[in-house]
Write a protein that binds this DNA or RNA. Structure first.
Length: 610
RNA sequence: GCCGAUGUAGCUCAAUGGCAGAGCAACGCUUUUGUAAAGCGUAGGUUGUCGGUUCAACUCCGACCAUCGGCUCCA
């Protein structure tokens, strides 16, 4: 870690202490949780006698500035764990006592991370320590003393009083567990100086301009209605992008030997009982409701599909299969519905209705590595087209799973080997696999830097067995295939959301809903503009002709705001020269070229997807 | 689902208990314009929904719905 970064972390960590100190002054009975450093600042969790208001934040911020200006030293203290527990018991800080007990037992208070591997809280194991710690450190700033491992500035004089800002309040469960009490979390932004803080605030303003929800409505790509929360309406321009992505996907997957199927959106619960989803997923599915209370159609319970795999299994099992057919790759893009919690919905990034660019590859066991390689090759090709950065993450056996541990271990070992051999860096998230098998996820960030799971490649030994799928092997024996579930985009909805933010709405030509805008100068140019529009449309280019009475400046403004890649203004000059003046998005220079040259250029860009 | 914030015309926002307004967009008329906003006019509202308080509610209170930021979850 560099000196500067270290210093910044110390500033942020120190400010968390100052915040806690200010909160304790305001609420002497406040119980303190934890207050770590985060990407652009810090937070601290509190159990308070009443709900904080935005006004409280202002007051706390003011008090923090005053404390910082008092030039308080951070004094290190050491106590035995017993003394420390007594100390915090006297001060009625049960959360701190819990942390000390963790230190005694595990040597750490951290639940999320151990040895570079992410753990789910419930899954984390005590560290095997040769010697358990018997003392803990505390830090004193002014009157405030907190349990802390350290990493502060020496004195608050090292912090500039205008380099931080209390940002927002939210709820957070103690130790990240829904069963625990919910604390109030105060987030703060903090930097070395006021300029860096101002720069970050400007950055956030820029980020807000890329927000796919804002651009989606400005560019008329999609919308929502309160009667369908989490279920997007795709508008004509958005459908163009949607279809371009699917067309490209179809075209590529035919080349890779995939066959597309379409299957029912509604199946009896029996199907999900076989697949295991009834037991593991039914509460997250929408079910068909006919009549009161019970959800049934003619006495049968139906579920709207939340995943395609059970029906892919049905198709595989619909006839006798031979080893010669394997790998058998069945793809589909049917609409899926998942009952996501209302508080988690977020524009296109988290919806209740979506399509996955799904496929299920049925393979023999020894074909797994090569099929995985083939899929990773598709991933690489797709993400390169969009110039998107992604990372891979292995998800291992969850707490609740199907099948036997030996099969799981074998599958996880296989995936680990494939990932290592791929050469692409990856992380591991323990317990994050699907209930039927381990998985490799493709992760990407949105404009705010939040990480989202996009594609996923999941290994499944369970469902083929449960559906009693088999193929005839070369030796005439019956064998169960292995299924690989995989999506490349992930969901089209989420992918388009990320794409909008990635391109800030300025899509490459092949995805642009309108590729060429034609605007007339005057009345005399209408016929020519219409003719030109027709010629471009016939060349397979999406074109919009605007021959209205508005000024040229206004027409250009309209097209610019729609982020259309090419603009052609047609006037006397173009008429007499028989050439086009081409205004290119994001460029100053306006080259003059013949219609043929322009068409060639645009068609090349569409074909090459640049 | 939990915590918090927000919800006024298609969009961006005014109006703090006393007649709901502006700019842009839309529509009409005039203008036919040379590379990011021509002029004038018209229309547009049960202020998210339902209930309560009040002589009077966009404004105060309650419930619900939706959206946003977190938490938990997750493609």
């Amino acid at each position: 870690m560099s000196e500067d970064k270290n210093k910044l972390e110390h500033i942020r960590h120190s400010l968390a202490h100052i915040l806690a100190s200010a909160v304790l002054e305001m609420f002497p009975q406040a119980q303190l949780g934890v207050g770590p450093v985060i990407e652009h600042g810090f937070y601290y969790d509190f159990l308070l006698p009443r709900t904080l208001t935005p006004e409280d934040l202002g007051k706390l911020e003011k008090r923090m500035r005053a404390l910082v200006k008092e030039k308080l030293a951070f004094e290190r203290m050491e106590m035995s764990t017993g003394e420390a527990k007594k100390f915090f018991a006297e001060r009625k800080q049960p959360f701190k006592i819990e942390l000390i007990e963790d230190i005694e037992k595990f040597g750490t208070t951290e639940l999320q991370r151990a040895e570079g591997v992410e753990h789910r809280a419930a899954n984390s194991k005590p560290l095997a320590l040769s010697s358990k710690p018997t003392t803990v450190t505390l830090y004193k700033t002014g009157k405030f003393i907190d349990l802390c491992r350290g990493g502060h500035v020496e004195n608050t004089s090292e912090i500039s009083a205008d380099s931080f800002k209390l940002d927002k309040i939210s709820g957070a469960y103690w130790r990240g567990d829904q069963k625990n009490p919910q604390l109030q979390r105060i987030y703060g932004l903090a930097f070395e100086n006021s300029e860096a803080l101002a720069a970050h605030l400007r950055f956030l303003e820029e980020v807000a301009k890329r927000d796919h929800k804002k651009l989606g409505s400005e560019l008329e790509l999609f919308m929502f209605h309160h009667t369908a929360p989490g279920m997007p309406y795709w508008l004509p321009k958005g459908v163009i992008i949607y279809n371009e992505l699917i067309n490209f996907w179809r075209h590529e997957h035919i080349k890779y030997g995939y066959q597309e199927i379409v299957s029912p959106l509604l199946n009896k619960k029996e199907l999900y009982e076989i697949s295991g989803h009834f037991e593991h997923y039914w509460q997250d599915m929408f079910v068909a409701d006919q009549g009161e209370g019970e959800v049934e159609v003619e006495g049968e319970l139906y579920g709207i599909k939340a995943m395609n795999c059970p029906n892919a299994m049905v198709v595989f099992g619909s006839k006798g299969r031979s080893y010669r057919e394997l790998p058998l790759r069945l793809s589909d893009t049917d609409m899926l519905h998942r009952f996501e919690l209302s508080g988690t919905l977020n524009g296109l990034l988290r919806v209740r209705e979506f399509r996955q660019d799904d496929a299920h590859c049925f393979v023999m066991e020894d074909q797994i590595p090569q099929e995985y390689e083939r899929i990773l090759e598709i991933v690489k090709r797709f993400y390169a087209i969009f110039k998107l950065e992604y990372s891979l993450r292995l998800g291992t056996r969850p707490e609740i799973f199907m099948g036997d541990i030996a099969t799981w271990n074998k599958a996880e070992a296989q995936l680990t080997r494939i990932l290592k051999e791929s050469g692409k860096p990856y992380t591991i998230k323990e317990g994050d696999g699907a209930f039927y098998g381990p998985k490799v996820d493709i992760l990407m960030n949105d404009a705010l830097g939040r990480q989202w799971q996009m594609g996923t490649i999941q290994l499944d030994f369970q469902q083929p067995r449960r559906f009693k799928l088999e193929y005839t092997a070369q030796d005439g024996s019956r064998k169960t295939p292995v299924a690989i579930h995989r999506v490349i985009y992930g969901s089209l909805e989420r992918f388009i959301g990320i794409l909008i933010e990635h391109f800030a709405g300025a899509f490459p030509v092949w995805l642009s809903p309108v590729q060429v805008y034609i605007g007339t100068v005057g009345e005399a140019h209408r016929v020519g503009a219409q003719k030109l529009g027709k010629q471009l449309a016939e060349a397979g280019i999406r074109v919009e002709v605007d021959d209205g009475a508005d000024t040229v400046g206004y027409k250009i403004r309209k097209a610019e705001k729609q982020k259309i890649p090419y603009m052609l203004i047609i006037g006397d000059k173009e008429k007499s020269l028989q050439k086009l003046t081409v205004r290119i998005r994001g460029q100053q220079r306006q080259p003059v070229m013949t219609l043929a040259a322009f068409v060639k250029r645009v068609r090349k860009e569409i074909a090459e997807k640049v």
